[in-house]
Design a binder for these strands. Structure first.
Lengths: 260, 260
DNA sequence: GATTTCGTTCCGCTGGAAGGAACGGATGCT
DNA sequence: AGCATCCGTTCCTTCCAGCGGAACGAAATC
């Protein structure tokens, strides 16, 4: 929204581009102009340039723009060479081995988080996630983990925004959600059951970067029937230890207020 | 290079971003400024903005910038929802079934092409490609296919640029390469053996978009020992037919000069 | 310790982008 | 069919935001 850093024109380009990260596959000039509060002429010029560079492409019938192969090349590399992902994967392999469930790693992005990668459970019935898909921060344990450890200002901005139920088990009351975030912040991990996907359970812990800010989270997830309260006691310390290991790999060197 | 369309400032942003599509993982301000011929101050401002939007992130020791999770979110979606990919995948499944080899689909991007997706061969010894990785247009059959059907101006620009050998079997003489491109354009498909990767063989055909321009290519690839001259005669018509099917799905409705 | 090279900051000038308005085509509603 | 709306695109003038040369401190190299 506010652009204090860098140049406003570059921010406009980035904002236009990021609009394509979720929502409808194709968007039109007027729609984008309305969403970002820019004149249509400006949006049109930016879109033209991005098409020229193949970051976007025009939809067949000349109605609307969508992501192009240039963005694909960029993103595939971003996924492949993410520092968080590289630090997490060996730890996740271990974690998946210990628990027998799928282990995932997510990174914080503007407006939510994305799954960077996963190590799939060897079991026949298992949970898998969609790499690179963006999810909001208010539902699910991987999301809530990030939200709970965000700087207060950013956290409140998310809570103030509209909260839409993803499933019937999503917490939609901001006050209740705030309570849960307090608990998560206090105990250093998050659990969830069916908030983002029905029948799924997960245990997640936050990952911190060099500067001490939360850069993402990891989770162990599977069918809710297997991740019951008994197994949870066994899994929680494993997930927390794994998250710590990854944070340290990223250069983080601190402690959590109410942790350990 | 030349920016006649849209705005120059947006083009600068796109160019900075696209620089991260290949080459070193992390790049510095001065390096980018040198590569793009911009003042350091400008590059620095753009980078600052892109970091703010999480399309880029700063490397640990504050030395250099690299792709961030925002780019990952963008690109994952671009791959997932590419029209070319969606049109190609069912056809590639069929093609892989018929040939027993790996089938791939590539899209043209600035400075080369990227693999959008593949259907892997069921055999134990098989060839696989790296999704999202960018390759130059002068080596390999998937690449040459695109190059051969590019508008003359663009093709000559590629040929004029420096041609570096990827393996010992890469054609580096522009004249010889031009001859091959003529052949490909004439017969409507391309074959290669070990140009991009030693021991690998491939048969590729171009895919055209609504406007009749080549938007990418598909290939059947595997160990060179299995893709010999005998099997080639069987595979070529299958690949050509598959490419035609995909082109038609994309709204293309024309014929090739020396084809059929 | 000297020197190069880095990332970052400052500031005055100017040229390119902004953006309101108008156009023509497509679509949908009555 | 006629009307109204909404779309993408283009035009043109005004002005302010970004350009970019230069200077700075830090860090790496020799």
């Amino acid at each position: 929204m506010t652009e204090a850093t860098g140049t406003a024109s570059a921010a406009r380009v980035a904002d236009v581009l990021l609009l394509f990260a979720d929502g409808p596959t194709a968007r039109g000039v007027s729609e984008i102009a309305r969403l970002l509060g820019m004149p249509k002429a400006v949006v049109h010029r930016i879109l033209t340039t991005l098409v020229d560079r193949r970051l976007l492409e025009t939809d067949p019938g000349v109605r609307g723009y969508r992501l192009g192969p240039g963005a694909a090349a960029l993103g595939a590399r971003a996924l492949r060479e993410s520092r968080l992902r590289e630090a997490a994967m060996p730890v996740l392999r271990e974690l998946s081995l210990q628990t027998g469930e799928t282990a995932t790693v997510s990174a914080r992005v503007a407006g939510g988080r994305v799954y960077l990668d996963q190590v799939q459970s060897p079991q026949e019935i298992k949970m898998t996630v969609e790499i690179g898909r963006r999810y909001p921060l208010h539902a699910g344990s991987s999301s809530n983990c990030i939200l709970a450890f965000l700087p207060a200002a950013e956290r409140e901005a998310v809570l103030a925004a509209e909260i839409t139920a993803v499933t019937e088990h999503t917490l939609v009351d901001p006050a209740l959600l705030q309570d849960r975030l307090d608990t998560i912040q206090h105990q250093g991990y998050a659990t969830s059951a069916g908030e983002r996907q029905l029948g799924a359970g997960a245990i997640a812990a936050p990952v911190f970067g060099l500067d001490g800010e939360v850069t993402g989270s990891i989770s162990v997830c599977g069918p809710a029937t297997r991740l019951d309260e008994d197994t949870r006691d066994k899994v929680v310390p494993l997930v927390r230890a794994a998250a710590d290991t990854i944070s340290r790999k990223l250069g983080w060197h601190g402690g959590l207020p109410d942790r350990g």
